[in-house]
Design a binder for these strands. Structure first.
Lengths: 197, 197
DNA sequence: GTCTATACCTGGATAGAC
DNA sequence: GTCTATCCAGGTATAGAC
């Protein structure tokens, strides 16, 4: 891995652990093993490097979500799979975390990937729920957009509760609660056509 | 308001806006109108002052929640009232925000009020949901503890989505989604005895 | 109780040598 | 591409005068 790459990855870790304000160029240099000169050769400064790191983390989130939400299974199965994805509850969400960073939110460039990926995720989930409603899998009274927002919010809020409690199981408990709420709106456990012939 | 009081209130505001790492003693002094000497007379330093501010914000949160969750109305009405409480979606939660602050989470003294208030809130909500289950208002299959955790998580996560989008309505949308999910588990719109004779 | 002076460290960045 | 030297502002705190 070359210096540029190590700088981005180290910045991603530090942004995850300490946020934008809490991350100094010096800390990035130490973690990446790159020197002062190297860092300012590859990037114009802290915001520039942070943008590269944030963009990559957002893209990661998008790709992982897409992998679970596309593919086989009923709508509820896919949503469940995504909500239950293995996550490090106590570390929090590397992207959601950035919304608490005043300097990120205030800078349109830095905030852009954050805004985009959560917008995409909510829409993607809403589309999936709408699909479930149309095929009769889900209660017709369920509003896809609102429900999708609620489910994504649970994901983000569960990190908050787990971190406050210093307890990873709290994360899982909240996710289970959300799935329990969703379960009440499942109409028929729709069979998916089996294409393995 | 005396200097000590102004220092605490200014610190609360700054912690809300910028978090612990992002808040400097100098900024606190400027906002409160108190000088360097005054601040270090009343408090041993930044952590000491922050503890006073955090404790007060946590107590505030507790009191506002208790006010909505106690009182008249069915369980669902009370939960709904609390979820729909007027909140400044774009500013985020003054307490939940602190869970993203590494220095707060790492310091047991600073984290204590945060941990306690979210623990209390989740338990309080769980007790209420259990009450609703017992009196037949809510579906018996709903797990009170998990559902409570999910509802509190939605509250916290909705801030994240709203801040990411720079849009307060996103907050409301997610809350509506959660209430919609809960609605599917309401059995009978239980009449509450009217004591106004 | 509050003020001013002082101290030392870190944050974020530039300049020029290699 | 990377290194070292250097810079200035700000963060956090102490000391002692008033």
């Amino acid at each position: 891995m070359d210096a540029r790459e190590r700088l981005i990855e180290s910045t991603r870790e530090l942004l995850w652990e300490r946020g934008y304000v809490g991350t100094s160029p010096k800390a990035i240099q130490e973690r990446s093993g790159a020197g002062q000169g190297s860092m300012y050769h590859h990037f114009r400064g802290k915001p520039d490097l942070a943008l590269a790191a944030i963009s990559r983390s957002a893209e990661d989130l998008r790709a992982r979500a897409e992998a679970e939400l596309t593919g086989p299974g009923t709508v509820v199965e896919r949503v469940t799979a995504y909500l239950r994805l293995e996550r490090n509850a106590l570390k929090g969400c590397p992207v959601g975390r950035l919304t608490e960073d005043p300097e990120v939110i205030a800078d349109p460039h830095l905030n852009r990937p954050v805004e985009d990926v959560f917008g995409w995720l909510t829409d993607r989930m809403a589309g999936l729920l709408a699909e479930g409603r149309e095929n009769g899998e889900l209660d017709a009274r369920l509003d896809p957009a609102a429900t999708a927002a609620a489910l994504v919010a649970v994901l983000q809020g569960s990190y908050v509760l787990a971190r406050a409690a210093g307890s990873a199981p709290v994360y899982t408990l909240a996710i289970d609660g959300a799935l329990g709420l969703l379960a009440g709106h499942v109409r028929k456990p729709r069979r998916v056509p089996n294409h393995s012939w």
